[in-house]
């Protein structure tokens, strides 16, 4: 009796909240339909492919085969491809939630108007993240198709990997959005860029973290992209084990922390 009364109400509240967030996503979709923006969006997925061909295939010829954590040997391209995939999910999400989000927050002041409506800061954050995921999801899907076509993974594992790339993107998107609310000027983005590039290079991307001295290895295993790389590598090379749960938990925690921080800080900045 109680559940039948409360449940529909709770559902309708959840539905109402979700539709609020989706209306923020819809705003971005409407904006994206205009002008030169499409060029930038389209050219976005080319970059990780170029890295895959250059480092994975070109340099891969010099490297030969490389060992996975479980000792299995794979080609260097097979080793690098999932890392490129994870990095691309990170970069795509961060592009949308740092530069673009900051622009909308501080420069275009889009959310000043949004928050004058029933929309809450949390709905803005989630709506923006969903948009970033839509964009990142398309990139990841294209990349996975290329991987499968080049025989760097199987079609089945590629299908499993797709939602995982969304998780990676979601976690980084939330983190990026949280950090953007702390930035004071465009100059501060240089630090984000350098950090991002550092993560890209040193997250077990091009060689296993075990190649580094132990202190560095530990440092790498604490940073977020490492978990995305390790997770996706386990999947696309078809060798997932129990450690994937730990990586997933890490990324989920990161997403929750980022979202909480972003919506709180947005409240502080805009609802003074």
């Amino acid at each position: 009796m109680v559940t039948t009364l409360i449940f529909p109400r709770a559902m309708s509240r959840l539905d109402h909240r979700a539709s609020g967030a989706l209306s923020v996503t819809a705003r971005n979709l409407a904006a994206a339909r205009h002008a030169a923006y499409w060029w930038v969006l389209l050219s976005g997925f080319v970059e990780p492919l170029l890295y895959l061909l250059s480092i994975g295939v070109g340099v891969g010829r010099l490297v030969g085969d490389i060992a996975l954590p479980d000792g299995r040997l794979v080609t260097y391209a097979q080793f690098v491809a999932p890392a490129m995939l994870a990095a691309s999910a990170m970069n795509g999400a961060l592009a949308e939630t740092t530069m673009n989000f900051y622009g909308k927050l501080k420069f275009m002041r889009i959310y000043d108007a949004t928050l004058a409506t029933p929309i809450t800061p949390m709905q803005v954050s989630v709506g923006e993240l969903i948009w970033a995921m839509c964009r990142g999801g398309v990139y990841s899907a294209v990349f996975l198709v290329v991987m499968a076509a080049l025989d760097l993974t199987t079609w089945g594992w590629a299908l499993v990997a797709l939602p995982v790339t969304l998780l990676v993107g979601f976690a980084f998107g939330a983190l990026g959005m949280g950090l953007s609310t702390l930035l004071r000027s465009w100059q501060d983005f240089d630090y984000i860029n350098v950090t991002q590039f550092g993560l890209f290079l040193f997250s077990g991307t091009f060689s296993p973290p075990s190649d580094f001295p132990v202190p560095l290895q530990i440092l790498i295993e604490v940073t977020p992209l490492y978990h995305g790389v390790a997770l996706l590598r386990a999947i696309t090379t078809g060798s997932p084990d129990w450690t994937v749960l730990w990586h997933v938990a890490y990324l989920v925690a990161l997403a929750v922390a980022g979202l909480t921080m972003a919506s709180r800080r947005m409240g502080v900045l805009l609802l003074k």
């Binding site: 490297v63 030969g64 490389i66 290079l201 040193f202 060689s207």
Partner: peptide, 9 residues
């Protein structure tokens, strides 16, 4: 990243 670690291989 590339020169030392990948270079090693």
């Amino acid at each position: 990243a590339m020169g030392i670690t990948v270079g090693h291989y």
